[in-house]
Design a protein around this nucleic acid. Structure first.
Length: 645
DNA sequence: TCACGGAATATTTTT
DNA sequence: TATTCCGTGA
């Protein structure tokens, strides 16, 4: 291999990584510990295949974010040549979309379907929820977001809704009937309007492969080598898709770390990775245990944390890096002294030369950082919170997209409501009437011009009519259409938002994206499946290189990232582990894995901080014990200090 | 029927 | 912090 290759496999890879790269036929499971270079292994393996002469188009690399696959293929291309960029790569969802656009009729729907992103499906659910008359009056009826969670869980775990409510939302048990009714409405509405949500993409792909063995065989013979990243976060449907795709050739490699499975609440099932060898008999298993990230004292601690898990592929991470200081557990008097401790330490670190962008504060839930944010602002320490709003989730982008969506699907009720409610003097009732008229005409959005109702003689509604008349009158490119909508929308924007200059910029950005598309349908599909990763307001986008700001992040959003110094705040029993997880051993164990993920982010310094006395309103309990995941760890592994004032 | 203001509330969120 | 819900007055 060395002789006729320009790729320095032996220099760049350790023996386990090398073994994974060279194992090219048959089922392979790579258990990749935190920071063990699994991306490197995957990248080199792609390059190796292509170098050997495997057609790039017959390799399928599935990941959970489009960014992950894009980067791997780009790096592989740097190693070898740009044939690697022709490898079929993407997310499960984009792969499902590609297949379904071709085969949708085989599973009973139109290939012109539109995709509902999370926000779309939530607003649809909200609409249906409001129409349930008997819901009104029940103050404690689940919100749209909760409903979407319940429906999603039922699908991803293949459980009936009753059971999901009983298991995870017992406090809504008395609403079970209404929730099921809304779920049925939701399904019906999607079917009638050719909408697929994210889950539907996977479900229909699975159904297609399962019910049409000829199609399944044909797809399998196209993709003869499968690689799946982050396998611990797949759900049952995804595992089944992989099983079906790999059944005929068995050339499937999955990479993951069962100890870092933290998405069970979305249906991920870490047992998929445990069961993989059963589903594919003869699976070869490789463990990557050499860690390239953290110092040994940090690894000693994280090894102890994860040793408490009951079900796992046991692995012990080690490093060859010398030195390092002990992780520290800090007891702070109250919430505010916790924040002050963090701010003070950050200041010291920064003065000793650690850039702010190399420091992160991690926490269990988004609102746990509120107090700290106030403290940081007061101290003048610049910070950025990850996650935050994504480009396509911001109101003004969604407003504009709604106008484009109805062009493709004139009976898209959610979008019409969104468009109409932007106009003054038009509320839900009038919007309903106008939509009814559009539906009644059964001819595009003709009803917009013929509808008669009070409240609509305003100039606003006239302008809307002109817009659609104009869009109708001639054929326009995607960008021209976008421009027309923007001209119409800008006055509304200026009226609605004080910060319109910033939002106008976003819209201009949107327009430049539109210029790349030949039709609106494919533009909208990409906006749902592969939205631009730029986030708005001053929150940080992940591809924004470490600038001069401290990072605040939930543990979930921190997965896969690393920093010089990591602070884990609220390491308090009842917060982390969350009070919601104390009743179920499965949930509790997931909290443990979450703590493991948090701690393994650190390269040099690791701090856990907990406030000593906190009253928790929802439970009525006083929380005062440090997180049980670390409370009993001996002093020679975890140092202790206390901080008052 | 709509618009507005104040109060209540919140676990985590790759598509 | 920010979103959503609810009641009130126009």
């Amino acid at each position: 291999m060395k002789a006729n290759s320009n790729i320095p496999y032996h220099e760049a890879l350790n023996p386990s990584q090398l073994e994974a790269v060279n194992f090219t036929e048959g089922p392979l499971l790579v258990i990749a510990g935190a920071g063990s270079g699994k991306t490197r292994a995957l990248t080199y393996r792609v390059a190796r295949f292509v170098e050997k002469g495997v057609a790039p188009g017959s390799i399928l690399l599935l990941t959970f974010t489009r960014k992950a696959s894009f980067e791997m293929l780009k790096r592989a291309a740097l190693l070898l040549d740009n044939r690697c960029e022709k490898v079929a790569g993407g997310t499960f969802h984009s792969f499902a979309n590609t297949v379904l656009r071709k085969y949708a009729p085989n599973v009973g729907f139109n290939p012109d379907y539109s995709i509902l992103d999370r926000a779309d499906s939530e607003s649809l659910i909200s609409m249906l929820r409001k129409e349930m008359t008997f819901v009104a009056g029940h103050r404690s009826f689940p919100r749209k977001q909760t409903l979407a969670n319940i429906f999603g869980r039922a699908v991803n775990k293949a459980l009936p809704i009753e059971l999901v409510i009983l298991n995870d939302y017992p406090h809504f048990a008395h609403h079970t009937e209404a929730i099921i009714a809304i779920s049925n409405d939701y399904k019906k509405h999607k079917a009638e309007h050719s909408f697929l949500d994210y889950d539907d993409l996977l479900v229909y792909l699975k159904t297609l492969l399962k019910d049409h063995s000829d199609i399944c065989r044909s797809i399998s013979s196209t993709y003869r080598y499968l690689m799946i990243d982050e396998y611990q976060d797949t759900n049952l449907i995804q595992a089944e898709i992989i099983r079906l795709l790999a059944a005929s050739h068995q050339n499937v490699m999955v990479v993951g770390d069962d100890s870092q499975s933290i998405y069970a609440f979305r249906g991920a099932n870490f047992k998929n990775i445990m069961k993989f060898p059963e589903i594919f008999p003869g699976t070869h298993i490789i463990r990557l245990e050499e860690n390239y990230r953290s110092t040994q004292p940090i690894l000693n601690l994280t090894n102890v944390i994860i040793a408490q898990a009951t079900e796992k592929y046991s692995k012990t991470l080690f490093t060859r890096r010398p030195g390092g200081s002990l992780p520290v557990l800090v007891s702070a008097g109250n919430e505010n002294s916790q924040a002050r401790f963090v701010a003070e330490e950050i200041r010291k670190l920064n003065q000793s030369g650690v850039p702010l962008g190399q420091i992160a504060v991690l926490f269990r839930a988004n609102f746990h950082s509120f107090d700290l944010e106030i403290e940081l602002s007061r101290d003048g320490i610049p910070f950025a919170k990850t996650g935050g709003f994504k480009f396509t989730e911001s109101a003004h982008i969604k407003d504009v997209l709604a106008h484009l969506k109805v062009l493709c699907n004139p009976y898209d009720r959610i979008s019409w409501y969104r468009i109409l409610l932007l106009l003054s003097r038009i509320g839900p009732k009038t919007a309903q009437n106008i939509y009814a008229a559009i539906l009644a005409e059964q001819e595009g959005y003709k009803g917009l011009f013929t509808v008669k109702a009070k409240n609509i003689l305003t100039g606003d509604f006239q302008r809307l009519k002109y817009l659609f008349e104009f869009l109708d009158s001639k054929t326009m490119s995607v960008a021209q259409t976008g421009e027309a909508v923007l001209n119409y929308y800008t006055p509304i924007l200026k009226d609605k938002y004080d910060d319109h200059p910033k939002r106008t910029k976003d819209l201009e950005h949107l327009l430049t994206i539109m210029e790349r598309y030949l039709n609106i349908e494919s533009f909208l599909t990409d906006m749902a499946l592969e939205p631009p990763s730029t986030s708005i307001n001053n929150s940080l986008s992940l591809d924004d290189p470490g600038d001069g700001r401290l990072i605040l992040s939930t543990v979930h959003s921190a997965k896969g990232l690393e920093w010089h110094t990591v602070f884990i705040i609220w390491a308090l029993d009842g917060r982390f582990p969350s009070i919601h997880a104390l009743h179920s051993s499965e949930d509790f164990e997931e909290e443990l894995r979450l703590m493991y993920v948090a701690a393994t982010r650190a390269r040099e310094n690791l701090f856990f901080i907990y406030p000593g006395q906190v009253y928790d309103r929802t439970s009525g309990m006083v929380l005062s014990r440090p997180s049980s995941f670390i409370a009993d760890i001996p002093d020679n592994i975890l140092a202790r200090i206390s901080y008052e004032q």
